[in-house]
């Protein structure tokens, strides 16, 4: 008889816990993939596709699934790769092959007298930062441009240039303090004393 009670107690416990777990799974369900969102937050959102994925989010999802390396994002730079390595507990890798050159952030500029109004760049812009209409001149909304360069290739008249963002009073910042290294003048040797080796060392 004792073992029947034991079985009943255990099955009752299993039922209660099972119900609690089932309820919890529904009640506290996490929508979307929290890891890919975290990765996406680290990525620079230039949407340039240099990683081989159509935008930052697809790349983030690929990383989350473990299908992509973390060193494919040149706009994120070395810093970005390090942050991803930190976040994912993976080994840091320097930026891969062709993506090794990290360029400063640029902005696209349309030479407006050359533009023929073909709208190809408007379609290419991943963040809708180009305004214009068919057979009308187009222009780039500077503040929204991410510098992804996706508009440069489609342009049939090559009127889009990538320009570096100039430093202004509003964007200027103090540099890392460095100690200026200045050559120490060699002490004047008193006449008759040969200490050229000593002074040479100091000058170096």
């Amino acid at each position: 008889m004792g073992f029947v009670i034991a079985i009943l107690v255990m099955s009752a416990g299993a039922l209660v816990l099972g119900a609690a777990l089932g309820y919890g799974a529904v009640r506290f369900r996490v929508d979307g993939d929290p890891l890919s969102e975290k990765i996406n937050a680290v990525l620079p959102q230039t949407q340039c596709g240099q990683c081989g994925f159509p935008g930052c989010k697809p790349y983030a999802e690929a990383i989350a699934r473990g299908e992509a390396e973390i060193n494919l994002c040149p706009p994120g730079g070395d810093d970005g790769a390090r942050k991803l390595a930190d976040l994912l507990g993976r080994e840091y890798k320097p930026l891969s092959g062709g993506a090794a050159t990290v360029k400063p952030r640029m902005v696209a500029i349309i030479r407006e007298d050359t533009c023929i109004g073909c709208t190809l760049c408007i379609q290419a812009c991943p963040v809708d930062a180009i305004v214009g209409a068919a057979k009308q001149m187009h222009t780039v909304v500077r503040d929204l441009c991410t510098g992804c360069e996706l508009c440069v290739k489609p342009c049939p008249v090559e009127c889009i240039d990538m320009a570096p963002i100039p430093e202004t009073l509003a964007t200027w910042k103090w540099e890392y303090p460095v100690i200026p290294i200045a050559p120490v003048p060699a002490p004047v040797a008193p006449p008759g004393v040969a200490n050229a080796g000593d002074s040479g060392r100091k000058a170096a």
Partner: peptide
């Protein structure tokens, strides 16, 4: 980046 992400997703 946040603005760019929103605009990209909207596009």
């Amino acid at each position: 980046a946040e603005t760019a992400r929103e605009r990209f997703e909207f596009k």
